[in-house]
Write a protein that binds this DNA or RNA. Sequence first.
RNA 1: GGCGGCGUAGCCAAGUGGUAAGGCAGAGGUCUGCAAAACCUUUAUUCAGCGGUUCAAAUCCGCUCGCCGCCUCCA
Length: 459
Amino acid sequence: MKIYNTLTGKKEEFVPINDGKVTMYVCGPTVYNYFHIGNARPFIVFDTFRNYLKYKGFEVIYVQNITDVDDKIINKAKEKNTTFEKVAEKYTKAYFDDIEKLKIEKPDKSPKATEEIKEMIELIRVLLEKGYAYIIKDGVYFSVEKFTDYGKLSNKKIDELREGARVEINDQKKNPLDFALWKFAKEGEPYWESPWGKGRPGWHIECSVMSKKYTGADTIDIHAGGIDLTFPHHENEIAQSEAASGKKFVNYWMHNGYVNIKGEKMSKSIGNIILAREVTEKYSAEVIRMFILSAHYRSPLDFTWENIEKIKQAFKDIYYTLQILKQVEKPDVKITIEESSYLKNFIDALDDDFNTPEALAIIFNIIKLVKEQIKKEFTNEIVYSLAIIEKNIIEMCKILKILPEIKKPDEKIIKLMDERNILRKEKKFIEADKIKEEIKKAGYILEDTKTRSFLIHEL
RNA sequence: GGCGGCGUAGCCAAGUGGUAAGGCAGAGGUCUGCAAAACCUUUAUUCAGCGGUUCAAAUCCGCUCGCCGCCUCCA
């Protein structure tokens, strides 16, 4: 399996540190608002990727932080005349509600920043001790110049960054790029005790701490997030972690592209956001996930209601086809990669830097086979072949987590269909059409072929 | 200014050296008692433009044009 690694700018063969195990850290939400569909992209992409790793037989440890104290949360609390804890609590709950609606599996660990303060203080202490950090009037800062590898992830040089940097308000900092490890509390701000004074952690430090604590290792396999986190957030994480441990922090950095609105990045500051919950109100998790996976994860993805509607139409094809297959009496079969060239191609596509659009195309290629076969006489051979096809589609949809729930229609509805077919044979079409109407009211459409009829639950 | 990405049919989107996947929409047709949200066929001699390398380029190189992102909070 190959993964594009931001650190090297190349696709690389994925080799986990420990055989059969993968440690994965995905940057999580800052809980000061409902998350939007742009935020949802990494959640969905990397949840699906985790699922794929599990399918491949890896044991995955998946950690995602919750930033529940920071300036934005504090400001929101002021604005709403409440406490930062209340704001964080509200949106943490909303985050879990929303990921559930999107059928995102809960992370194995969802550590909260406020519950890891002790470890963060310890890490800062080490950095101070090793001379990577210094204390000024408003906090403890990391000195980027002390860390020679600074910029290796985002391919930036300290000097060049300095030129582009804006006017720095804080003239006590040794370098404008130095970032806060610990911020001293101003009047009325929440604080925790520390050896250097009352305050709160800087943003980056939590990821360094949690990543190590919950994977149990200085070096993890995969660290993922939106491309906008590359600099400065991930760069700073590397600096902190590697300065402290002296070891490589992350082997593979994966970054997803933006969700755009009319070609422009969706972001809270621009204000062009569509909340994830606005989308889950209108579309099922499977359709939303398929929409997200319809573009390669590193490419930009334009969100429009028309585009997601197109995906819904395409998804219908999968849904309807699986329903038809469900209504065919078939033998129980097993499929293997060796026997199914479709499955093999599917896996090959995903093994190539998680190429989900290619993988989706393969699903549609198989669906075409169903359409060819379903019209034919149901010989043993055909039925067997349909069984194999169904298994393939289900397997693939499961891997991509776009498998819709397929129920056999109620006995009652099946009876109605049988009755209608008898009436049709007797050429009592008026009565037959009445039953058709009745079936439609129950939410099913009928599809008649030469030899049989199928009931299809409408999406 | 520095760094990075992108430009493939009406739209969405794979493909990164061997002759353009897949989806949506459209057009024509078929099945059917009727019908379908069913099925079939069809839709890029061409991949932003111009040069170059090569037996061979959407794919590699150079230049031009256009769009976007990061360098400040951001998924």
